[in-house]
Design a protein around this nucleic acid. Structure first.
Lengths: 216, 216
DNA sequence: CAGATGACAGATTTCAATATCTGTCATCTG
DNA sequence: CAGATGACAGATATTGAAATCTGTCATCTG
């Protein structure tokens, strides 16, 4: 298992090489992710994380006040990766708000579906983390809804969308109506082949509701 | 454990009086519900159910092959009560399909919200049962979607709704888009006061998508 | 003889003793 | 002296022996 330049072997099983790099929060988060991947959410301990980094567990507590704060930070980091990925679609001012919203919703579904499908075990681990960090999840949802709101706003501005209500409320409705395609609780169903048809059907319905009526 | 007619009190705590009624599946289901209410899903045993009825547990097994079949039957019974309650809205041919669908969706939300709010502990018990009987849940969903399909069909027939696709598929999309307001996974959020506004927003969006465009 | 019973074997759950982990802090080290 | 360490107390998790439960079936009873 030993991989360090000079480090032969260690007493206990899987100890990673001691790095000369300074111990940063970021390095601890990476190590934690690795430990979670290997041991799962129930058996991943702070001691494991410290071992993984070749330091004492006291050092980890210098960067994160509690185990739960550490897990919260890992969760936030994971969710933020998705938020950032999608912001590229939401931030460019679109020519076609409807196409843009469609692309954004498809992007969200695609991102979640990939995470769930590629490594189901790691996904299950994150499901546990999400359940114990509802605060962080709520913030994540707030950010996603804000991105939808951006697109809705443009759509209303250029007369593509009806203003059914305040932009924020409409954005939230769009998010809620597509829950089945981004909420991890439904992940098992994302494997069914019909899911894509079902996704299209819901998106058609929702975009139909958004579209300005008096055009036809 | 003597329980003849005339037995006043018994050795162990909560034994129900022995009834002279014949032991039917229905009576066993009622007793099981009572035991689940009292002991919760984890500690409710077949022996408890038998005790509740004043019979031996062997007699319960004459009506239900396994404990899991018994729990499944209780679950189905619980879900069927909601299905039946809603069918009155779905079965009458409506003058106004939109108003009818709105009433049906509100009825479903209302029914679920009442169940969750009135006795949270019993609701939590049923959440466990639902999780272990996904087959039964799927059938329940199929029935509900069929009711929506009925309303959608009328709406299309009398030119109130656009045919966005096959009725069944559209009905399913309506059901999916309103998941947040009937899926027990979201029950904790049904307590928030904003939930009604959010419900209205989603229903407006969905009904807007259903509405025939070239009227305005 | 249809329907109920309770003893029984194997599966599952409970419980208490034991081991491990979390979070702190006095001490150490470069 | 900034940052790391590991011994320690209380909290949490693991483990295995004992208790309970599930499902069967030979036997009983009205």
């Amino acid at each position: 298992m030993s991989t360090g330049p000079g480090t032969g072997s260690d007493t206990a099983g899987n100890v990673k090489v001691m790095s000369t790099e300074p111990l940063t929060a970021e390095r601890i988060l990476e190590a934690t992710e690795e430990v979670l991947r290997r041991h799962g959410p129930a058996k991943a301990t702070v001691v494991d994380v410290a071992r993984q980094l070749g330091v004492s567990h006291g050092s980890v507590y210098r960067h994160f006040r509690t185990k739960s704060a550490l897990r919260e930070a890992v969760t936030k980091r994971w969710l933020d990766r998705t938020t950032r990925e999608l912001s590229s679609i939401a931030d460019d001012e679109p020519k076609d708000a409807e196409a843009s919203l469609r692309a954004w919703l498809a992007g969200l579904f695609e991102a979640k579906r990939r995470k769930a499908g590629d490594d189901p075990q790691l996904f299950a681990t994150y499901e546990v983390l999400l359940a114990e960090n509802s605060e962080v999840v709520e913030e994540h949802i707030t950010e996603l809804v804000a991105q939808i709101e951006q697109i809705v706003h443009w759509g209303v501005e250029r007369g593509q969308f009806t203003a059914l209500g305040p932009d924020a409320q409409v954005a939230r409705a769009v998010f809620d109506a597509t829950s089945r395609f981004h909420d991890p609780a439904y992940a098992p169903q994302w494997l069914k082949p019909e899911i894509l048809v079902e996704f299209e059907a819901v998106v058609d319905l929702v975009l139909g509701g958004l579209r300005l009526l008096d055009r036809s």
